[in-house]
Design a protein around this nucleic acid. Sequence first.
DNA 1: ACAGCCATGTAACTCGTTACATGATTAC
DNA 2: GTAATCATGTAACGAGTTACATGGCTGT
Lengths: 183, 183
Amino acid sequence: MSQELPTTSYALLGLLTFGDDLTGYELKQRADRTLRFYWVSPAMSQVYTELERLTEHGLVKARAAGPNRRSSKYSITAKGRRTLTAWLEDAPPEFPVLKHPVALRLLIGHLVDPEHSKALLREHLDALAARRAELERVRESLHGRDAPGESFRYPSLVADWGLEYLDGERTIIEKLLLRLDEE
Amino acid sequence: MSQELPTTSYALLGLLTFGDDLTGYELKQRADRTLRFYWVSPAMSQVYTELERLTEHGLVKARAAGPNRRSSKYSITAKGRRTLTAWLEDAPPEFPVLKHPVALRLLIGHLVDPEHSKALLREHLDALAARRAELERVRESLHGRDAPGESFRYPSLVADWGLEYLDGERTIIEKLLLRLDEE
DNA sequence: ACAGCCATGTAACTCGTTACATGATTAC
DNA sequence: GTAATCATGTAACGAGTTACATGGCTGT
């Protein structure tokens, strides 16, 4: 009863609980601004597939918006809200999964020149900074609606979490670079 | 030329570069002690599938060990070593992917009682501590072969990275809990 | 008129999983 | 002798991707 859909379905359903109706396209954009940092942002085609499945289960409902049946907006249903809440309350979360191509490469660093591993880590620092800037922009867009009780309270908490994670990673990499210099 | 196999294949191939030959079963065990923390530890059946594929590509070679053709050991070939090194040098790493069920749940925390979100985070602290203990045990098993130039230098660097990551996550969660108390 | 974005959807495919089947070896 | 662990493999499936096809809308 508590996890009969893939987690990505619940994630997308959750993005429809912020008070507005979205098209598939807009839902993908919201995923790019939120889910991407803590989960995955599904491909466009996957978003449509999920919306179809959620509709079949009665968890969302499409409303044709324009006169031309394009741009139909999806909204979460009462059943969808109940189902999502039950999932939150009953399904124990898995431990996070990290797929870290940089750590994986460092693991077998003995195959390449140490300078190469250092360059790898320095490039990762750049990528981290870029990712941080993206998330910082998202975080700023929530300002003003992020006080306790307001609609973006939780998204802003999670964004702060993400920012601190990225800062922590930067610190770790810098220390690793120092250790690699002691060769 | 540089990424014509899934990353998991290269990862398993990399685990065969530490100077010993392994059976599929032993390879899975090594993955559980290393890959699990920075990538994924593939299912047993997947390990055998990958070994088959790597054999087809000439990157590993099986040597029947016992008299009974069971327990055949796999070793990396010269071509496998060249291919893996080329992958390390030429294939630019993707940005890490984090699938974080706890962050995902907190994102839609407005659907549940704040006490529930706090319990979620406290349970996550327990899970983090357990994971840390596992990794700490792995880290300790590398002591003595982890000096610069020694075979487990890089695995130990990555293990330290993992430990610091887990410590950082703990700190972040503790701060989040404090902020949630200000409701 | 044309570029670029908005918008939806299908088909083929890959990765990786779970469930299942099977048997050898080791410890008690 | 029997339970646990070692060890290998197959089959069915699910989640999600890329590539492709299509067409509407907007700004210049």
